[in-house]
Measured scan of single mutants.
Amino acid sequence: RRVTVRKADAGGLGISIKGGRENKMPILISKIFKGLAADQTEALFVGDAILSVNGEDLSSATHDEAVQALKKTGKEVVLEVKYMK
């Protein structure tokens, strides 16, 4: 599913991630910080795999590559996510 997140002037997306190619895992949302941008969408969940950020494929990204992709986003971020059981 596709989720658009609008960041506030102060603060980032409000998520922590884990996983990555070096761990043989997808990039997973490991924490959502209450009240910040990702939480306010009410459409992102701990355990979601982030498949892409603004069209940039993260399916084979390392953890560091995913962190950089998320950091360089502007005010509006489009995440392609899939819930992983």
Score class of each variant (00 low, 15 high):
residue 1 R to M: 06
residue 1 R to H: 06
residue 1 R to C: 06
residue 1 R to L: 02
residue 1 R to F: 05
residue 2 R to S: 09
residue 2 R to E: 08
residue 2 R to M: 13
residue 2 R to N: 08
residue 3 V to R: 03
residue 3 V to G: 02
residue 3 V to D: 00
residue 3 V to W: 00
residue 3 V to S: 01
residue 4 T to C: 11
residue 4 T to M: 12
residue 4 T to I: 14
residue 4 T to A: 07
residue 5 V to D: 00
residue 5 V to F: 07
residue 5 V to T: 03
residue 5 V to I: 15
residue 5 V to E: 01
residue 5 V to Y: 04
residue 6 R to V: 14
residue 6 R to S: 12
residue 7 K to S: 11
residue 7 K to P: 12
residue 8 A to K: 12
residue 8 A to V: 13
residue 8 A to H: 12
residue 9 D to E: 15
residue 9 D to N: 13
residue 9 D to P: 14
residue 10 A to K: 15
residue 11 G to H: 12
residue 11 G to C: 11
residue 11 G to E: 14
residue 12 G to Y: 08
residue 12 G to T: 11
residue 12 G to P: 09
residue 13 L to S: 03
residue 13 L to K: 01
residue 13 L to R: 03
residue 13 L to Y: 04
residue 13 L to V: 06
residue 13 L to N: 01
residue 14 G to Y: 04
residue 14 G to Q: 06
residue 14 G to N: 04
residue 14 G to E: 01
residue 14 G to S: 01
residue 14 G to H: 00
residue 15 I to A: 02
residue 15 I to T: 01
residue 15 I to Y: 00
residue 16 S to D: 13
residue 17 I to N: 02
residue 17 I to R: 03
residue 17 I to T: 06
residue 17 I to W: 04
residue 17 I to Q: 02
residue 18 K to V: 15
residue 18 K to N: 09
residue 18 K to D: 09
residue 19 G to N: 01
residue 19 G to M: 06
residue 19 G to L: 02
residue 19 G to K: 04
residue 19 G to I: 00
residue 19 G to Y: 00
residue 19 G to C: 01
residue 20 G to M: 01
residue 20 G to R: 02
residue 20 G to S: 01
residue 20 G to C: 02
residue 20 G to Q: 05
residue 21 R to G: 05
residue 21 R to P: 01
residue 22 E to R: 03
residue 22 E to M: 04
residue 22 E to Q: 09
residue 22 E to D: 12
residue 23 N to P: 03
residue 23 N to Y: 15
residue 23 N to R: 13
residue 23 N to C: 11
residue 23 N to T: 12
residue 23 N to F: 13
residue 24 K to T: 06
residue 24 K to L: 09
residue 25 M to L: 10
residue 25 M to N: 10
residue 25 M to E: 12
residue 26 P to G: 05
residue 26 P to Q: 03
residue 26 P to I: 00
residue 26 P to S: 00
residue 26 P to M: 04
residue 27 I to E: 02
residue 27 I to K: 00
residue 27 I to D: 03
residue 27 I to T: 01
residue 27 I to Y: 00
residue 27 I to R: 01
residue 28 L to I: 15
residue 28 L to H: 15
residue 28 L to A: 07
residue 28 L to M: 14
residue 29 I to P: 05
residue 29 I to H: 03
residue 29 I to T: 05
residue 29 I to E: 06
residue 29 I to N: 04
residue 30 S to T: 11
residue 30 S to N: 10
residue 30 S to Y: 05
residue 30 S to Q: 09
residue 30 S to W: 06
residue 30 S to L: 04
residue 31 K to W: 14
residue 31 K to E: 12
residue 31 K to D: 10
residue 31 K to R: 11
residue 31 K to V: 01
residue 31 K to T: 07
residue 31 K to C: 07
residue 32 I to S: 02
residue 34 K to M: 06
residue 34 K to H: 10
residue 34 K to V: 07
residue 35 G to A: 04
residue 35 G to I: 00
residue 35 G to Q: 04
residue 36 L to N: 09
residue 37 A to M: 01
residue 37 A to H: 03
residue 37 A to N: 08
residue 37 A to R: 05
residue 37 A to P: 14
residue 37 A to V: 07
residue 37 A to G: 10
residue 37 A to T: 07
residue 38 A to V: 08
residue 38 A to T: 08
residue 38 A to W: 05
residue 39 D to S: 09
residue 39 D to C: 05
residue 39 D to G: 06
residue 39 D to W: 09
residue 39 D to T: 01
residue 40 Q to W: 03
residue 40 Q to A: 12
residue 40 Q to R: 14
residue 41 T to I: 08
residue 42 E to K: 15
residue 42 E to C: 12
residue 42 E to W: 05
residue 42 E to P: 06
residue 42 E to Q: 15
residue 43 A to W: 01
residue 43 A to P: 06
residue 43 A to D: 10
residue 43 A to R: 11
residue 43 A to Q: 15
residue 44 L to V: 13
residue 45 F to P: 07
residue 45 F to L: 09
residue 45 F to N: 14
residue 46 V to P: 09
residue 46 V to R: 05
residue 46 V to L: 04
residue 47 G to D: 10
residue 47 G to L: 03
residue 47 G to F: 05
residue 47 G to C: 01
residue 48 D to I: 04
residue 48 D to C: 05
residue 48 D to W: 04
residue 48 D to E: 00
residue 48 D to V: 01
residue 50 I to V: 07
residue 50 I to F: 02
residue 51 L to A: 07
residue 51 L to G: 04
residue 52 S to I: 02
residue 52 S to E: 06
residue 53 V to N: 06
residue 53 V to W: 01
residue 53 V to S: 04
residue 53 V to M: 04
residue 54 N to C: 02
residue 54 N to P: 01
residue 54 N to L: 01
residue 54 N to E: 03
residue 55 G to W: 00
residue 55 G to K: 05
residue 55 G to C: 03
residue 55 G to Y: 01
residue 55 G to Q: 04
residue 55 G to A: 04
residue 56 E to Y: 14
residue 56 E to R: 14
residue 56 E to D: 10
residue 56 E to C: 11
residue 58 L to V: 09
residue 58 L to Q: 04
residue 58 L to N: 01
residue 58 L to W: 05
residue 58 L to S: 05
residue 59 S to L: 08
residue 59 S to Q: 11
residue 59 S to V: 07
residue 60 S to N: 15
residue 60 S to P: 01
residue 60 S to E: 13
residue 60 S to R: 14
residue 60 S to A: 13
residue 61 A to C: 09
residue 61 A to P: 02
residue 61 A to M: 08
residue 61 A to V: 08
residue 61 A to Y: 09
residue 61 A to F: 05
residue 62 T to C: 06
residue 62 T to K: 07
residue 62 T to W: 04
residue 62 T to E: 06
residue 63 H to M: 13
residue 63 H to V: 14
residue 63 H to I: 12
residue 64 D to H: 12
residue 65 E to I: 00
residue 65 E to M: 08
residue 65 E to N: 05
residue 65 E to Q: 10
residue 66 A to S: 04
residue 66 A to R: 00
residue 67 V to I: 13
residue 67 V to Q: 11
residue 67 V to D: 08
residue 67 V to P: 02
residue 68 Q to I: 09
residue 68 Q to Y: 07
residue 68 Q to L: 10
residue 69 A to E: 05
residue 69 A to N: 03
residue 69 A to G: 01
residue 69 A to V: 14
residue 69 A to D: 07
residue 69 A to H: 08
residue 69 A to Y: 07
residue 69 A to S: 09
residue 70 L to I: 08
residue 70 L to P: 05
residue 70 L to H: 04
residue 71 K to P: 03
residue 71 K to D: 14
residue 71 K to Q: 14
residue 71 K to T: 12
residue 71 K to V: 09
residue 72 K to E: 11
residue 72 K to H: 12
residue 72 K to V: 11
residue 72 K to N: 15
residue 73 T to G: 13
residue 73 T to R: 07
residue 73 T to V: 12
residue 74 G to R: 08
residue 74 G to P: 09
residue 74 G to E: 10
residue 75 K to G: 10
residue 75 K to N: 12
residue 77 V to T: 10
residue 77 V to I: 08
residue 77 V to R: 06
residue 77 V to L: 09
residue 79 L to C: 04
residue 79 L to F: 08
residue 79 L to R: 04
residue 79 L to S: 06
residue 80 E to K: 09
residue 80 E to P: 02
residue 80 E to Q: 09
residue 81 V to Y: 07
residue 81 V to D: 02
residue 81 V to K: 06
residue 82 K to L: 10
residue 82 K to D: 08
residue 82 K to V: 11
residue 82 K to C: 11
residue 83 Y to R: 15
residue 83 Y to T: 15
residue 83 Y to W: 09
residue 83 Y to I: 07
residue 84 M to I: 11
residue 84 M to T: 12
residue 84 M to K: 09
residue 84 M to Y: 15
residue 85 K to H: 09
residue 85 K to D: 14
